[in-house]
Amino acid sequence: MKIFKLYLDKDLEEIWLNEMVSSGWALNNFFFGVYTFEKCKENEFIYKIDLMDSFSGTKSSLEYIKFVEETGAEFVSAWGRWVFFRKSASEGPFELYTDVDSQIKLYQKIRNMMGIVALLEFIIGFSQLHNLSQFNAGIGYYSLTGVVFLLGGGIGYAALKTHNKINSLRKQKVI
């Protein structure tokens, strides 16, 4: 089964993947918003999503995936810097980041990556607008630029939400 979905919040995405498991569907591949599921036993796995330091396929990303697999987790899919892991639910709880400091570091990585992507979208959007203003472009061209701005805005908002998550984690630390 394939489902197309756009998630800008990895925590919500994780919740959804684990809800799918509770109804007997296990993710086995992700590519550009397309989630491919296969049948599994209800509540068979726990899924976790992680952002790596480098792109999938690089030496350091392979090293990280191997490291996580050695701890008993299973590599499911990788796309860009994102990676999906799962573990049998029968083996108990599954967490990749178990202290506040490393959780903060992860969200900082996510926020910075999203910030850069949002900025790129806006740069592309404005340069498109500039190009379109040079000739009598139809509405179709402008709606394409609109999509770019919409994406940039969405990802920028997600970066802001991640920033707030970091702040609330920081507050937890200073009691």
């Binding site: 992680d50 996580v68 050695e70 701890t71 967490e95 990749l96 980041y97 178990t98 490393s102």
Partner: peptide, 24 residues
């Protein structure tokens, strides 16, 4: 890696289970 996780778990009577991401 996995040996460290197990050793720490043992030393703390299962209280502290390090996540792979945190450990890495």
């Amino acid at each position: 890696g996995y040996g460290i996780i197990q050793d720490v778990q043992l030393m703390t009577d299962g209280r502290l289970v390090l996540g792979a991401g945190t450990l890495y």
